[in-house]
Design a protein around this nucleic acid. Structure first.
Lengths: 277, 277
DNA sequence: TGCTGCAATTCCGTAATGTGGAAAGAAGTT
DNA sequence: AACTTCTTTCCACATTACGGAATTGCAGCA
């Protein structure tokens, strides 16, 4: 069969041992990047370097499972809602989301700022939950599902900082390899991490977005190797140092409470299937 | 090969034309149901009716892509955070989530109640976004990713009601076939739908959870075939009829604003990649 | 310390499964 | 109406995924 790995096959690291799966994953990721409007078969096929027939078959199969939808029944494809359902369970995987949600709600309710629950996923950090405050700055910040390389971004830094030193170096190296820009700021990242390790939290004006400040605390339940953090974004000029410290204290309170809950065996989470509206 | 479809193969409707994919999907769904603690290979294999070696291969491949994680490096598997990332993009697929989030934030901020953005996915409705209010009743209600058969549940009913009559009947029939209990309440569901069609909204004390009342309005941008709804849950005794009507008015206001935005071509959404904290 | 049993891996020959080229439909465009 | 572009279906082929058997790893127990 003319199925040689084309010499310029993208990411050899994407090979997992099951071809169809690899291709499906790449297809879905591609669709994800395409975002809103959807993509047509031919573009997808081109983007993946696959024949139209193969792409078509993949799409049909994924569509069958609700992982891909057609935009108003036509020729454009986009990611399907079944993924959202699956991911909902994934996000609750550790029970963390459920556990932290009330805390997030309280924090953003009191402060009016948006709060995030962030979890590690391999070399990335993922926004697993997000609670809007009264001051909506939506368009600038990450939504649920947002990804960032570990080390970059508030919660991300707090998480990475609480890893063993060897792990940290490995992650930094890997991410520098993945992202050229990452390498250049490696030293600053390292410095930041050291700061977090010393203080137990991250407070910084140097967010990735000019004018946005950041506050974040890692969640480290004794025993568990959970790698998560709670973070907040706010317009830097809105809170002076005193206010930030007060806010920080509240966050640490909530985190401590969460850690305590997780430490109590059995109380971590409840396998109850939830009902609905 | 001894790869006959076993006579009692579960759901023949799960066949999509690509075996590996079907199996992977079933595996992921199974892991999703398992939830928190994770599942071990042997149970998974048993649950799927697959050999251990096949299951192992699937798991390894999925793990490679971050769709499955090992609980603290051990023998238990659970859904991975990469799914959350993918689903984040899926949830924004229509641009709806981003568009509605500020509205949800306002509504739950003002009322103190939790609000939901619900979208159709085939025969189901999926909770695509959720904004916590001051009154947290978390454990009872659906989280992001929560699924319910179309017709059951607040937003769900509002969405279904705004479909053409033929579609409604088809969905009801299909869901009655899927869920035995659904069939018995079909007449009540139909009645509810008619009510929604007449009023343009759903207001009911008969939520699936005793004591919880429900308010929901479908989002129907002229032209678009979008099938979504905004919904709220609240403890029935907390709001009297007057308060509910006022709340309803606010919801309809927000929905109208959203529909207006969507009608303006180009203003629907912006393909801007968002930055982060 | 050495069994014993169960679960997770790895190996490997086999054929079933997924493959892409070619050809047929659909839908716009000039 | 001829042309272009994209989607969908068909089909013979060999690559890919399959599962049984063998191996390794790990607890619990004697």
């Amino acid at each position: 069969m003319a199925n040689f790995r084309s010499p310029d096959e993208p990411q050899a690291s994407t090979e997992s041992g099951i071809q169809v799966l690899d291709r499906s994953v790449r297809l879905l990721n591609l669709l994800g990047e395409a975002g809103h409007g959807g993509m047509q078969l031919s573009r997808l096929a081109a983007g993946l370097g696959l024949s139209a027939s193969t792409t078509h078959r993949l799409l049909a199969a994924l569509e069958h499972h609700g992982w891909v939808e057609r935009v108003d029944g036509g020729k454009l494809h986009r990611l399907g809602a079944a993924l959202v359902a699956l991911a909902g369970q994934a996000a609750d995987g550790t029970g963390l989301r459920r556990l932290c949600r009330p805390a997030l709600a309280r924090l953003s309710g009191e402060s009016g700022e948006t709060t995030f629950l962030i979890v590690r996923s391999g070399l990335n950090a993922v926004v697993v939950d997000r609670q809007e405050g009264a001051y909506v700055i939506e368009s600038l910040t990450q939504g649920v599902g947002g990804l960032m390389p570990l080390g970059i971004g508030a919660g991300s830094a707090a998480i990475l900082a609480s890893q063993p030193e060897a792990e940290i170096e490995a992650v930094l190296a890997a991410n520098a390899a993945r992202y050229p820009q990452f390498g250049s700021s490696a030293e600053r990242v390292r410095q930041r991490l050291r700061q977090v390790q010393a203080q137990g939290y991250l407070m910084s004006d140097e967010s990735l977005i000019a004018g946005l400040a950041v506050l974040s605390v890692a969640i480290r339940p004794p025993g568990h190797a959970v790698t998560a953090a709670i973070a907040t974004n706010f317009i830097a000029s809105r809170l002076d140092t005193a206010a930030r410290l007060a806010f920080l204290r509240r966050i640490r309170q909530e985190v401590a409470a969460i850690e305590a809950t997780m430490a109590v065996p059995g109380a971590t989470q409840r396998p109850t299937r939830s009902g609905e509206s």
